[in-house]
């Protein structure tokens, strides 16, 4: 474990707490002008369920196991809140990104490009590829609604920063322990790349107190 990865995981936790706070506070998934994509949250739940199949078989540390359990539980809880508790405020007509394309694409690629053709390894690889593009329905929704509440932008900032810091963690681990993992490196770079234009707007507008509005 290194500081970069620890802070990255904490930013991931922060993003989940921001989302839960927003949903509890506004008691909905659609604030005045910003909406949370159910598809993205469902994709994240899938990512954690397919990635942590080794939850009991592969004990790394108490931290690792605790975080895995938290990510699985929180992502399922968010899906539950969106699907049942705040269902009335969830408008599927705005969540129009074709999620089946990213799921199909990630599954196909995981069957072709993986480290071992075993069920667990292919599921793990699928979760890595899926996580890279899971934010697309959410970003797509932002482009449709054209603007987002500030708290939603902080959610996206934390989420984007988490994987961005993992990139730094991988550079550090390559440099210190010759750690190489092409699959997570490339997927992580794609994932962080998807946030670039969001980060640009976030830093140039939201942090200056302006509303988050897409040009």
């Amino acid at each position: 474990m290194n500081l970069f990865r620890l802070v990255a995981d904490l930013m991931h936790l922060v993003s989940i707490f921001i989302l839960l706070l927003k949903m509890q506070k506004t008691r909905s998934v659609a604030g005045r002008c910003s909406r949370i994509s159910f598809k993205t949250q469902a994709l994240y739940a899938t990512v954690f369920l397919t990635r942590y199949t080794d939850l009991f078989a592969n004990f790394q540390s108490l931290y690792n196991t605790t975080m895995k359990v938290f990510f699985i539980a929180s992502s399922l809880y968010i899906v539950f809140l969106m699907k049942f508790k705040f269902k009335a405020t969830n408008d599927p007509r705005l969540d129009t990104f074709k999620a089946q394309y990213v799921v199909g694409g990630a599954a196909a690629l995981a069957l072709i490009v993986n480290y071992a053709f075993t069920v667990q390894e292919v599921l793990w690889t699928f979760s890595i590829y899926l996580e890279a593009v899971a934010i697309l329905p959410q970003l797509f929704m932002l482009t449709k609604t054209g603007e987002a509440e500030v708290i939603t932008t902080h959610y996206l900032f934390a989420l984007g920063t988490y994987r961005g810091l993992y990139l730094v963690n991988w550079i550090y681990r390559y440099w210190t322990e010759y750690y190489v993992d092409w699959i997570v490196w490339i997927a992580g770079a794609v994932q962080t790349g998807l946030y670039c234009d969001f980060f640009y707007i976030y830093f140039t507008k939201v942090l200056k107190g302006a509303k988050f509005e897409l040009p």
Binding site: R5, D9, H12, D54, N58, Q60, N64, M67, K68, F71, Y115, A116, T118, E121, W124, Y166, V180, D181, I183, V184
Partner: peptide, 10 residues
């Protein structure tokens, strides 16, 4: 390959 070693990252 050694990459199928136990995944130690979240």
């Amino acid at each position: 390959e050694e990459n199928t070693r136990k995944h130690d990252e979240l």
